[in-house]
Design a protein around this nucleic acid. Structure first.
Length: 543
RNA sequence: GCCCCUGUAGCUCAGCUGGAUAGAGCAGCGGACUUCUAAUCCGCAGGUCGCAGGUUCGAAUCCUGCCAGGGGCGCCA
């Protein structure tokens, strides 16, 4: 129970008392008004209640104000009815001091937990083809998937990070052929992979020129996966499982292969049929616009079949929420995968396919397309070399995953020193410095003390309110899978702290005041560090 | 043709499950360093929220149509 939820409960109770059971049109809001002078918190409850009561909104607001005064007592300084019928609440300084105490008591857990129900989540992301290094598009996917996983964990879920390795099928064959061609000093074919890294790999496979292509391909994929894992590690992304697509096609007698097993599950439910020599899945029964092939007339399995088997296996492994972070070029696949998931007997809300919009690469003011086959792309390592992990992660996470972003490496390089991430980190370093100046002993005493009865500065009230908003921000970010909200919040919190720092001397003022300001500094420092951690960005003590 | 995302300040983007005077960063202009860290702060300037209708006490936000940009519509992966 946070101070803000207590307030919200009081408002809802007051609404209940007035409304007498008549349902309001919607849940009343309790928000921090943008406009100073509109109170610390404001509610539109009266506007929503007025039609049901048949009374003018402003009059309803007056009555609501009386109810709230009674419920909140001395915590409430005063209420004002404003505009068409908003009710503005002005809280007493004592309320603020108590609220801050609540934040400090929550400690590292402040803003987290509360997942209901807590789920066992498998977050599958990146899953780039292991036929080349990963580029900025995958890097965005990596940053987002990892931050989402961090958020879900912080919210109280159990999270497993997974990378699906597409080590099966024709592109792997082509990959092997390209390596072999290079090993023999030849050009890869028209459809082959032409990037420089292919030569590297060819050099690292001793018998690449003569070994069977399948072996070369397998070894090439292994090397590539190793390299990808290293790059991602450097980017602070670790996977719990690297899942091989090929393994889905391998049977371990007497058990059938996972793909055959999935076919059996589907057949039992009567979801498949044969036509034109192929095996089809009736995805149309679940809203897809056409049925899909699982096994071609040639007897080969489609990629879709692998994926179905993979999802079935994830279910059997005990996850009750499967999240896949996909590039926008996969959106056509969402409908059929959901259909297949239901055909397997999965509940619709246990599979979530999140579509990330793409990264456009810009070079010399012109859009260029990223092609792995032609070897034209900016790799994760180049990006990190140029601007560093913190700036890269911030840059990729500060925008909604639903919007296309442009990456101009020249511009990114040029502007990286202006990246807002440094502003946030600087605020954190600055607080560390202030606390250091105060000394451990004084900080410890301040934290051990009771919230005093000092009159607050506006900047202090604003900062406390900003801190109190954190749990809601986290909850909303999780709810909407909107990681960028955390970045926006971190920046705002840093700005709010900086204003406080400007207006309020911390160390060396009256003991009561210093104590409160030290407490406020500690709470802010922790919250900034937490927000940065959720994004996978470091929180330095000095800059 | 159908489907998904986007269109908000010069640029990059927040705000979008309806609320009061639409925000931030960068870029621009003018100011502030005997400080608790100037990687900072203060001020100024900058907007037909793509366009047109509709819903309502109230629309950047919801609905419809149109325009523009990106992506997708395989027995490819």
């Amino acid at each position: 129970m946070t101070p803000v939820t207590e307030l919200r409960d009081a408002v809802e109770a007051a609404v209940g008392a007035l409304g007498d059971g008549t349902p309001a049109r919607a849940r009343p809001t309790l928000e921090r008004p943008k406009q100073a002078g509109h109170g610390d918190y404001a509610t539109n409850a009266a506007l929503l209640l007025a039609p049901a009561l048949g009374a003018p909104p402003r009059e309803v607001a007056e009555r609501l104000g009386d109810e709230l005064r009674e419920r909140l007592g001395p915590a409430l300084d005063r209420v004002e009815v404003a505009g068409p019928g908003f009710l503005n609440l002005f809280l007493a300084d004592r309320w603020y001091a108590q609220a801050l105490a609540g934040v400090l008591d929550a400690g590292e857990a402040f803003g987290g937990g509360g997942a209901d129900p807590a789920r066992v989540v498998n977050v599958e992301f990146v899953s780039a083809n292991p036929t080349g290094p990963i580029h900025v598009g995958h890097t965005r996917n990596a940053a987002y998937g990892d931050a989402l996983a961090r958020l879900l964990e912080f919210g109280g879920h159990t999270v497993h990070r997974e990378f699906y390795v597409n080590d099966f099928g024709s592109q792997v064959q082509r990959f092997g052929e390209s390596i072999q061609a290079r090993a023999r000093g030849e050009e890869p074919g028209e459809e082959g992979y032409r990037g420089e890294y292919i030569e590297d790999i060819a050099r690292r496979i001793p018998d690449a020129a003569t070994a069977p292509v399948a072996d070369v391909a397998r070894r090439g994929v292994e090397l590539m996966v190793e390299a990808i894992a290293q790059s991602l590690e450097r980017f602070r992304v670790r996977f719990d499982t690297w899942f091989s697509e090929r393994s889905l096609h391998e049977a371990h007698p007497p058990d059938p292969s996972p793909v055959e097993h999935a076919f059996d599950v589907l057949a039992e439910q009567g979801r498949t049929y044969r036509s034109d020599g192929a095996l089809w899945l009736r995805t149309t029964e679940f809203g897809d616009d056409k049925d899909r092939v699982l096994e071609r007339s040639s007897g080969e399995h489609t990629y879709f079949a692998s994926d179905i088997a993979y999802h079935q296996l994830k279910r059997e492994r005990g996850f009750n929420l499967l999240i896949n972070v996909l590039g926008a070029d996969h959106h056509g696949y969402v409908g059929r995968m959901h259909a297949a998931f239901e055909a397997l007997g999965g509940a619709p809300d246990e599979l979530e396919l999140l579509i990330m919009q793409l990264v456009q690469l810009v070079e010399g003011g012109r859009r260029s397309s990223m092609s792995k086959r032609r070897g034209e792309f900016v790799t994760i390592d180049e990006l990190v070399d140029e601007i560093g992990v913190d700036a890269a992660r911030w840059y990729l996470l500060a925008r909604s995953h639903e919007t296309t972003i442009e990456v101009d490496l020249d511009l990114a390089r040029e502007q990286s020193s202006e990246n807002p991430v440094y502003y946030v980190q600087y605020a954190h370093a600055r607080i560390s410095s202030v606390l250091q100046k105060a000394g451990e002993e004084r900080v410890r005493r301040a934290l051990a003390g009771e919230p005093g009865d000092v009159e607050l500065h506006d900047a202090e009230r604003t900062l406390i309110k900003k801190l109190l908003a954190f749990p809601d921000e986290v909850a909303e970010a999780i709810e909407r899978r909107a990681v960028h909200r955390i970045a926006a919040y971190a920046l705002e919190l840093a700005q709010t702290f900086t204003a406080f720092y400007r207006d309020c001397q911390v160390v060396g003022v009256e003991p009561d005041v210093e104590e409160l300001r030290l407490r406020l500094s500690v709470a802010t420092r922790r919250t900034i560090a937490r927000a940065l951690d959720l994004l996978g960005v470091s929180a330095p003590d000095a800059m």
